[in-house]
Design a protein around this nucleic acid. Structure first.
Lengths: 125, 125
DNA sequence: CTATGATTTCGACAGACGTCGAATTAGAGG
DNA sequence: CCTCTAATTCGACGTCTGTCGAAATCATAG
């Protein structure tokens, strides 16, 4: 019982990221690397019921509705949030699996190393 | 024994990010939201001895030395890596505290809520 | 001191990105 | 059917960003 534990660093520091994994992850990170989108994500996630109406979000910024809509689309395309129309309003909620994937990249691991290669962890929820 | 535990979501979904925190974090995330910089970070972190020479990194890409140097500067400015010159070569290593801060943002918390407000966690290592 | 190799700085350029106003789509309610 | 409001799409504009080649800096070796 020696070979399966690797008490080291964050996932990103385990082994060099493949070119395609890096490109993939960069897309997700780009989506989140903007002050407005960070706040949107945070507002949606911390809103009562776990979801927020676009109207609530728009009011919280000094930006036009098209701009907010654009940012929401970026987050949605990256799989970080999910939107649903109910009547006149559209409600967005966080997709925890995708958000967690980002966290796993940079969070130090103290657990035993997985049986599968790193790729598996990156791609799976 | 009721008020101090909040078994909820990631830090980012705890409460709405302040405007300044969001701007601050976006800077760090922008630094990492690029395929080349992600791979650089990964290569540095996973390299033997926890550090890598610029020459090693440059060889791994189809990019010119100035471009790699530019990306390293972005990572260094964001506080994600730290460089040191030893003789002819310059060696870079990861700054784990900064990297961990990113992870904490998106990683779900199952621990008791902190005594300090969320701001404290975002700013501290 | 000069030469050589490693790394960074500088200036330029093409492409990506955030923002807006105008126009469009989609329901709700007369 | 018409109107009103919510939200998205579209087109345009200025700015930021990734890349390069040329030049500068730094340290070791002759």
């Amino acid at each position: 019982m020696a070979a399966t534990t690797t008490p080291c660093c964050a996932l990103i520091a385990r082994e060099p990221l493949s070119e395609t994994d890096a490109a993939d992850l960069a897309l997700m990170l780009k989506a989140v690397a903007d002050p407005v989108r960070l706040r949107l994500l945070s507002m949606i996630g911390s809103h009562a019921g776990g979801e927020a109406c676009v109207c609530d979000l728009t009011d919280a910024f000094d930006l036009t509705a098209p701009t907010i809509s654009h940012h929401l689309k970026v987050l949605r395309t990256a799989g970080l949030i999910d939107g649903e129309r109910r009547g006149t309003w559209v409600y967005y909620r966080i997709v925890p699996e995708t958000v967690n994937r980002l966290g796993a990249l940079f969070t130090p691991l103290t657990e035993p190393a997985p049986a599968q290669p790193v790729d598996a962890e990156l791609r799976t929820a």
